[in-house]
Amino acid sequence: MNKVYIFLIVIITIFLSGCVTKRYAWNNYDDTLYQYYKNPNEAEVFIEKLDAIIKNGEVSGTVPPGIYAEYGYTFYERGQYSDAIIYFQKEYDKWPESRSFMIKMISNAKNQNKIKDQKTSDTIPTQ
């Protein structure tokens, strides 16, 4: 019987040791994204939580890969292109692997910004 318990303890330790420390401060990123897909109307919650993950991760220097870009895109979607660029740039600076993608996203955001500016300058004279 003792052997059985030892065997169990060993197995449980192996399982536990696998999930003790995480490299990054995910802060329930999986659940955050899940909730967003489940309730797409509650985008503000998603945005707030991404912001919290970033703030929390910056304290320990363990912001997970992709999070700055994901957060930046929430600005992009709302037409806040300058804010989007700030976070795409942060992703670019932190992760060399993201650079070619982030260059594209930044240039997209700049183009969108120009279009937006043109639209607003077009409408101003008529008012």
């Binding site: 490299r23 995910w26 999986d30 899940y34």
Partner: peptide, 24 residues
């Protein structure tokens, strides 16, 4: 598919790879 997508970034990134933002 969407629900699953929310679970997949963490294990891959924790193995030490840069993982592109899945939603973006």
């Amino acid at each position: 598919p969407e629900y699953f997508l929310s679970t997949i970034s963490i294990p891959v990134a924790e193995q030490g790879y840069y993982v592109f933002p899945v939603n973006l």
